[in-house]
Design a protein around this nucleic acid. Structure first.
Length: 434
RNA sequence: CGGGGUGUAGCUCAGUAUGGUUAGAGUACCUGGUUUGGGACCAGGGGGCCGAAGGUUCGAGUCCUUUCACCCCGACCA
């Protein structure tokens, strides 16, 4: 992509209501813009990042044997009447009616729809287990949307539902998904913890959350410094007062707060703030029973499916990457999430030698399938650098004043270091580090 | 859903207490010139139904009523 042809509206100032780094930088960098309360548009850069995260999620799930589907986003209210959630989900579920005055729902989650999909199509234990997922828009009419992409009303979520002949097999899948989620978040370059969680309204026995560690996280978790134990405080403390008191504390206050108790492994426990980006539940037969979704077991006896459900907040992950990876100048994307891996900056486009080299490197990197953007705008050096830092390309090749000596520079966004490299070596050097 | 706040140029905001020239600044944008390694400078220019609807008045961005939107604090939630 040529920067001169790209739609990347960056700004010097952030909207006055954006308080979190991810919100400010994603808006300033031209990734997203707000359409309404809790509603966001993804502009080209935001769309690229969103798709990259979606692809990582899809690749790992497919490797683990899951099937991707796509359910209709608008669902008839009757679907929700049958499970009883038309009443229990309350106002979070946005209802609409069509021209015939029939009532519909903008799906906030899809247990019912997925059970209905499988019901009467999977009739034998021989067809189990089965794990179906979709990466699709969800709508939850939050009482108070906030923090940009972290708590929107419309958001992109991966939701998966698995069906099993026995509880043992369901637990096997649950463990497999925990391992798969770890691969996904590791590939995305995130520092995260798996924690014991409160199952909440969705119900079920075992439930684990995946938290990206970030000062701005809305949840408070307890983690061990020696083993991989972690828990959401909602799980550990009994009363709402205790949980709320801790959640209100800032990151700084929490890090000073010590825990006297030791972990069962003997390690020290401490409080951290986390952003919940994944949640896996053991559902049992709650939905399959109420919706009468059954299969025949080895003895030909009808039995309700054992189920589990697995969620990942895909659009929330876009913001989570930045909450965890930014500095005062802007975004620092990880390798799997960067909108473009290499930015070629022609310092002065009136300098023919600089422009020529820029074009040459641009086409060579394209030939090698490197995601590359050429900053060919008629702007000054400082302007282009600030822009590149705000957007957060991992590497920028600066073609500028050192070219007369046969040198260019490679700017590393994460370390902010510039390294001079000869023109002859720059291609091999860049291919090495990306 | 309770409490508070804000809607004026693409963006950030003055102006509203006390109604009165042609509604402002910074930034962004366009033109010309100078500049060219850290969001440049000079000159000129375009851009507004002052959130919407009613009302008071000779006259409303400013006063009154209604309404919509957005934000913040709580409660709730992935």
């Amino acid at each position: 992509m040529r920067r001169s042809r790209a739609f990347i509206p960056t700004t010097k100032e952030a909207p006055s209501d954006a308080t979190l780094p991810s919100h400010q930088f994603l808006v300033r960098g031209g990734f997203i813009n707000q359409q309404g309360s809790g509603l966001y548009n993804f502009m080209p850069l935001g769309k690229i990042v969103l798709e990259k995260i979606r692809r990582v999620v899809k690749e790992e799930l497919d490797k683990a044997g899951c099937n991707e589907v796509q359910l209709s986003f608008i669902t008839p209210i009757s679907l929700w009447d049958r499970s009883g959630r038309a009443d229990t989900m309350g106002k979070e579920m946005l209802r609409i009616s069509d021209r015939h005055d029939a009532d519909f729902v903008l799906s906030p989650t899809n247990e019912e729809a997925m059970v209905e999909l499988v019901k009467n199509r999977v009739n034998s234990y021989k067809d189990l287990p089965l794990n179906l997922y979709q990466i699709n828009t969800k709508f939850r009419d939050e009482a108070r949307p906030r923090y940009g992409l972290l708590r929107g009303r419309e958001f992109l979520m991966k939701d998966a539902y698995s069906f099993h002949a026995s509880k043992e097999d369901m637990i096997r899948e649950f463990d497999l998904m925990e391992a798969t989620y770890k691969k996904i978040f590791t590939r995305l370059g995130l520092d995260f913890r798996v924690v014991q969680a409160d199952s909440g309204a969705i119900g079920g026995e075992g439930s684990k959350e995946f938290h990206v560690l970030a000062d701005s996280g809305e949840d408070t978790i307890v983690i061990c410094d020696a083993c991989d134990y972690g828990a959401n405080i909602e799980k550990i403390f009994d009363t709402e007062e205790e949980v709320n008191a801790l959640n209100e504390k800032s990151y700084e206050e929490l890090s000073e707060k010590t825990i006297d108790e030791k972990c069962s492994c003997g390690g020290n426990l401490s409080f951290k703030k986390g952003i919940e980006v994944g949640h896996i539940f053991q559902l049992g037969d709650r939905y399959s029973s109420s919706l009468e979704a059954k299969f025949n077991d080895e003895n030909g006896k009808p039995k309700a499916f054992e189920m589990a459900t697995f969620g990942i907040g895909v659009s929330r992950l876009v913001a989570s990457v930045i909450e965890q990876n930014h500095d005062e100048n802007g975004c620092i994307w990880t390798k799997e999430t960067a909108p473009y891996m290499v930015n070629i900056m022609v310092s002065n486009i009136k300098d023919e030698a600089q422009t020529e080299l820029g074009e040459k490197l641009y086409s060579e990197l394209q030939d090698k399938n490197v995601e590359v953007i050429l900053d060919d705008r008629k702007e000054r050096f400082g302007f282009k650098m600030k822009d590149a830092e705000l957007i957060g390309f991992p590497y920028t090749i600066i073609i500028g004043k050192e070219l007369v000596n046969g040198l260019v520079q490679i700017y590393d966004r994460k370390t902010t270091e510039k390294t001079s490299v000869s023109v002859d070596e720059v291609m091999s050097k860049i291919m090495d580090i990306i």
